[in-house]
Design a protein around this nucleic acid. Structure first.
Lengths: 137, 137
DNA sequence: CCCAGTAGTTTGTAATACAAAGCATGGCGA
DNA sequence: TCGCCATGCTTTGTATTACAAACTACTGGG
């Protein structure tokens, strides 16, 4: 079945890319989840609950996660003027810088893989991944 | 840059598929790592060190991981007749059955995504992922 | 037969994750 | 306006995951 091969390929590439991200994170004492938080916060300022939902984590998990990142000076908690119960999360300048560094590392780490494809194939791969995964459901 | 879009797409799809796998694992009290162990052992009988290297984990991490899976009756440790220091790991029948179930779940969960592509595009996606990631480096 | 090296386990510590309970605030109905 | 339930987040307790360092058992060379 073609779909079996595709499932295998997706799962394999998932673990492979996750391995790269884990290694790059570990070099800077960031777990995969923390690395992902940095990535998300690069262009967002969500509240705790939104971020938890986005990550698929319990809000109690997020409290600890943000605690540790805050202690390291990477993120900060902000009050939300509309609703005083709400806590907004955002990157500090140090966090933003680290996020950009990490992103650069990721680009560099994936460059060999990407360079195995010609520009046309790269576009095609982006399109196919987008078509398959980036839709409702 | 085209390569930026591709990095984004790969990272996004990684987290998306990892999320699916995590959810399916959680339904059966399997962490992502345990789920991966089951997948690997479906067609292998490695020693502890080999498995640790394959997963990118420390051997001490693997001891605990296999302990818990063994207690649940999913895997077993076997003696290696060539070298009595070595511990081989393999699935029990129960572990194999669970692995097959999980694999079925994963196929089902990814089916909507896969069905968004026509057969030709599926093949193409498999080829591109293989070409990019499944090579040396 | 000794001894360095290899294979796994054990121990100690920190991070990750969830669930349940708790605290403060918000907002609605009477 | 007051009471009360819902919401947003934190705290607490527990299990898992992960690493590093120390330890045990075995191998193989000299």
């Amino acid at each position: 079945m073609t779909s079996d091969a595709l499932v295998d390929a997706l799962v394999r590439s998932t673990f492979q890319v996750a391995g790269v991200l884990t290694r790059i994170g570990a070099e800077r004492d960031l777990s995969l989840t923390q690395l992902r938080v940095l990535g998300i916060l690069r262009d967002r300022r969500p509240r705790m609950t939104e971020l938890a939902a986005f990550l698929g984590l319990d809000k109690s998990t997020l409290s600890g996660l943000i605690d540790r990142a805050e202690r390291r000076g990477l993120v900060a908690r902000g009050k939300n003027p509309q609703d005083r119960r709400v806590v907004d999360v955002f990157l500090t300048p140090a966090g933003l810088e680290l996020a950009e560094q990490v992103y650069g590392e990721v680009r560099r780490a994936l460059a060999p893989a990407i360079n195995r494809l010609n520009p046309q194939d790269r576009d095609q791969l982006v399109q196919l991944l987008h078509a398959a995964l980036h839709s409702p459901g």
